[in-house]
């Protein structure tokens, strides 16, 4: 640990703790998850950087969305994201999360994940290699340092819009809005 690092620890221990203890929720959405096992096991050993998978959303603070998102998976993704404790960070993995990738015209995948939950950063490629995950993690560190990984704040602020988008694609959802906002007014505002 160099002196620079130490100064940061002293100045903002919480932020540093959030940086170096990224616990990723165990959620395999699409084909991209095939890159995760080598990342967390002996070949690349993500635990060196404090990145470990956890079993439930409650214990995690990093959500890695690996690959295409079908409508059915989207419901689970939203639920999982909402159950993660704040602060929480999301990373879209692979082109599919950015613009639909090779599934851009599929009838049951969504194209732009960012419309439904806030994304802090993307890893482009189809497939990105495990090294790309490490690059993403270091980028995420920089973002956290500069307070720019604020997806959860955006979600809270623009919840009405997110919820409206979610309901547009999923229809009626099984759980009530998690924040106190008037979804209906938001929809009328958007349309009006």
């Amino acid at each position: 640990m160099d002196r620079n690092q130490l100064m940061k620890w002293i100045k903002a221990p919480t932020k540093m703790a959030h940086k170096y203890s990224l616990n990723a929720v165990y959620f395999c959405t699409g084909c991209g998850v095939i890159e995760v096992p080598p990342t967390i096991t002996s070949r690349w050993d993500a635990e060196r950087f404090g990145v470990v998978p956890t079993a439930t959303a409650r214990q995690a603070n990093l959500f890695l969305i690996t690959g295409y998102v079908s409508v059915k998976t989207l419901r689970a993704i939203i639920r999982t994201y909402e159950q993660m404790p704040e602060p929480k960070y999301t990373v879209g993995f692979g082109s599919c999360t950015i613009n639909g990738g090779m599934y851009w015209d599929s009838y049951n995948t969504i194209n732009q994940l960012d419309k439904y939950i806030p994304i802090d950063g993307y890893i482009a490629g189809c497939m990105p290699r495990p090294e790309a995950i490490f690059v993403a993690v270091t980028h995420l560190w920089t973002l956290i340092d500069k307070d720019m990984a604020d997806g959860y704040k955006r979600y809270r602020k623009n919840y009405a819009a997110y919820r409206a988008n979610q309901e547009m694609i999923l229809g009626e959802m099984e759980w009530p809005p998690i924040f106190q906002t008037e979804v209906a007014t938001a929809i009328t505002e958007r349309e009006g």
Binding site: A17, Y20, S21, N23, G50, Q59, Q83, P85
Partner: peptide, 13 residues
């Protein structure tokens, strides 16, 4: 220690 510090400052339910 890092993990515990991180968990300690997270808003849970």
């Amino acid at each position: 220690l890092i993990d515990i510090l991180r968990q300690f400052t997270q808003k849970s339910v």
